[in-house]
Amino acid sequence: MAFINYSAREINCKLVYYGPGLCGKTTNLKVIYEKTAEGAKGKMISLATETERTLFFDFLPLALGEIRGFKTRFHLYTVPGQVFYDASRKLILKGVDGVVFVADSQEERFEANLESLENLQQNLREQGLELSKIPWVLQYNKRDLPNAVSVEEMRKALNPTGEIPEFEAAAMSGKGVFETLKALAKLVLLELRKGSK
């Protein structure tokens, strides 16, 4: 849950990038880190294995600016995508304010996307949260690859009602990364407004 600090006049929100292994969660954070101005970002931390697979999480703090005199900070986390790191994924979801689900558009990862989304719902439920009740957005990543399945097919499987904001991306080249982040940040802030009325 967001942390409102009246003393420092700050609001801190926690955003989590979720998705199957190698879908590009860490790449999203790296791009955000590289393209964000020095003063607006903190250090990016990656707790990864020697082969650069996320072991626990990546962390990137962002300070976007002020709203009504309050500094608005977003703490971005990724989860480890590999199936056997489920215990770690649960921990990182604690206190989440919003989720980016990064789906891998490659045909051979179609099943993995579905499994990971199912896993996200399950892990949120264990915290007493419903995915449908929290801000979340979908990113169809790796659109630039030749074996990418059509957006329609992805939508049918992952966003059948079409209600979830979705973004096409090629995170390696930076495409779609900021659009995704902005959309989620906006939803989280709107949720805060709703929650405080």
């Binding site: 976007l64 009504r68 005199g69 309050f70 940040a185 405080s196």
Partner: peptide, 23 residues
């Protein structure tokens, strides 16, 4: 604070413009 009135959160009054300005 969250359940009752209180001074209220500063975010109760934010507008879409406020959010857009951030970006």
């Amino acid at each position: 604070e969250l359940s009752d009135e209180g001074p209220g959160s500063p975010f109760a009054e934010i507008t879409d413009d406020d959010i857009d300005n951030l970006f």
